[in-house]
């Protein structure tokens, strides 16, 4: 065996160090490459969304009832995770909106039907904002967006300050009178995690409510949004709702 001189030893050692460093760097480099090609916020699956077809809603209020039953929402008026509004546009241009008991008991026909140009029902629920004001204002981090895109409330951590109720541009939050926390539509998170539809979607007799996965282009929701002209509420607020409406009139707020 040949004796190593200093020059040969140093060269071999340097080569070994370089080879080792390269092998150490390979994995993180590949990871970084993957990260920049497909960032996690683009490949997140599933990513839940919702759509409402106003042209199909008959105002029966079954969704309101199902929501209250499924989520233990107080039966009294003013406490709603979802509710139905009736818009009527008159010949005079006047717009009237009513929602007797949130539509829970259905809607009686209006008395002055002759003066109405058009009328329609608008079911309302959490707009599932990508950029939600309620999360931004919560002082304790008790409301948050889950990794699959649903805005939830941590009932153990909520201090009941009601700031989020003020912040929601869609009025979808209420103060729970017995739990003393803010409450809102959770997209029936306990159901969708078990592979079921939200309760309102299950009971809707006319399929006016569509729930599904936005990250899957073949899901019923993605197809509905792709095949129909849809609009969101208050787009100028910059909240980027994941709740899409078909047949949304400009009078709807």
């Amino acid at each position: 065996m040949r004796r190593l001189d200093r020059r040969r030893f140093l060269r071999t050692a340097l080569g070994a160090v370089v080879a080792y460093a390269a092998s150490c760097l390979a994995a993180p480099l590949a990871r970084a490459q993957r990260f920049f090609r497909a960032p996690p916020w683009k490949i997140r699956t599933p990513y839940w969304g919702f759509a409402v077809d106003i042209t199909k809603c008959i105002g029966c209020g079954k969704c309101v009832d199902a929501c209250k039953t499924e989520n233990d929402v107080p039966r009294e008026p003013f406490y709603f995770r979802t509710w139905v509004e009736r818009y009527a546009i008159r010949k005079s241009g006047e717009v009237t909106v009513d929602s007797p008991n949130g539509g829970l008991d259905g809607f009686e026909p209006m008395r002055d039907e002759d003066s109405i140009v058009k009328a329609f029902f608008v079911p309302k629920l959490c707009n599932l904002c990508e950029n939600s004001p309620c999360i931004q204002v919560c002082p304790v981090g008790a409301t948050f967006k889950t990794e699959d895109g649903v805005v939830l409330i941590d009932r153990k951590y909520c201090i009941g300050c009601r700031y989020c109720i003020q912040a929601c541009p869609y009025g979808t939050r209420y103060y729970h009178p017995t739990l003393k926390v803010a409450d809102k539509c959770s997209l029936c998170y306990h159901r969708i995690k078990r592979g079921l539809n939200p309760a309102c979607v299950e009971v809707c007799p006319t399929d006016a409510r569509i729930f599904g996965d936005l990250s899957d282009p073949r899901s019923p929701l993605s197809r509905f949004i792709a095949e129909n002209p849809v609009q969101v509420l208050k787009p100028a607020m910059g909240t980027q709702p994941k709740l899409a409406y078909k047949g949304l009139d400009r009078e709807v707020r």
């Binding site: 039953t69 989520n71 948050f144 009932r155 306990h190 159901r191 079921l196 299950e202």
Partner: peptide, 24 residues
Amino acid sequence: KLGHYRAAAVDDVKAMPVRYAGRA
């Protein structure tokens, strides 16, 4: 752990009882 919130809260919400059997 997952963001500016209690990650265990997600499990709390998930544990709520199911009342409607649903179309499944």
